[in-house]
């Protein structure tokens, strides 16, 4: 696929800290309109933190995040609400409101942000649920759905306001390969049907191969690779190579150090 470079999200020199600990250290990248952009990295590399910053749930220490040209790190709450109406997010554990039926979950943003009639909202809810393959489930409670269905319902809710960008936090985490593949196909379908920009955080190589247009790879809060999957596979960076080859960390060098740390004699 080819794209006209039309940046929709621009991240510049992003630094995020928890207290004294720097979690993200000078991250730069751009997401183009209509592409599926994957944020890849090992556990604890800061990819979830990056996502929380992109949707404005956290404020960075420094740097800027522009969505459609507006810097969300400096805007007021009121302005941020307007930006968020055009964003959708699928949470790792789907984060459906457990006290509401699936239909009400999907209808909630429509009821709160639009002046549509209840009958129209009803129809739109049904359309969104049909879209993710959950037609007829609007009266179920989230606790009555399986893990994969919850994720689909979460996607329907994220799609409710017809967003321009949709964020996925670990979409295939905790799902069996078949359901995960179904979700990958759904992410692809959404992107192609609605020309959606998708930002996906994951560590599953299998789904990256299926959905990614471009990938950013993080290691300990820094970008170590940015480009298409093919470009990354050519990379000479040792961590990127190790990640793609699915090799464990070398243990032999550390063995002596490990024993020393056990006996508490590492300072001699």
């Amino acid at each position: 696929m080819s794209y006209v470079a039309d940046p929709i999200i621009e991240v510049r020199d992003l630094v995020v800290r928890y207290g004294d600990r720097t979690v993200l250290d000078g991250v730069n990248f751009t997401v183009n309109r209509g592409e599926t952009f994957v944020i890849l990295g090992g556990s604890g590399c800061g990819k979830s933190t990056l996502l929380r910053n992109l949707v404005g749930l956290m404020r960075p220490y420094s740097g800027s995040i522009r969505i459609n040209g507006q810097d969300i790190t400096t805007m007021s709450d009121q302005e941020r609400v307007e930006v968020r109406k055009k964003l959708g997010m699928c949470f790792q554990a789907s984060a459906l409101f457990n006290s509401m039926s699936v239909g009400d979950n999907v209808a909630l943003p429509l009821r709160e942000h639009t002046a549509l009639e209840e009958s129209t909202i009803d129809i739109m809810t049904k359309i969104k649920l049909e879209l993710v393959g959950l037609g007829g489930f609007e009266n179920y409670l989230p606790s009555e759905l399986s893990g994969g269905m919850k994720k689909r319902a979460g996607l329907a809710r994220a799609m409710a306001m017809d967003p321009e960008i949709i964020f996925y936090d670990e979409p295939s985490a905790g799902l069996d390969p078949i359901v995960a593949a179904g979700l990958d196909a759904l992410i692809r379908k959404m992107q192609q049907t609605f020309n959606l920009t998708s930002v996906v955080v994951t560590h599953e190589m299998a789904s990256v191969r299926l959905i990614a247009d471009r990938v950013v790879m993080l290691l300990a809060g820094r970008v170590v690779g940015l480009g298409t999957l093919d470009e990354l596979q050519q990379s000479e960076h040792p961590f990127v190579k190790q990640f793609f080859e699915r090799r464990p960390d070398d243990e032999s060098d550390n063995r002596e150090e490990f024993i020393r740390s056990l006996t508490g004699q590492d300072n001699d």
Partner: peptide
Amino acid sequence: GTMKVSEEIDALEVMGL
């Protein structure tokens, strides 16, 4: 507290609610 743990509070915020 439960809503916070299951990210429902974050979900509200991201929806602009």
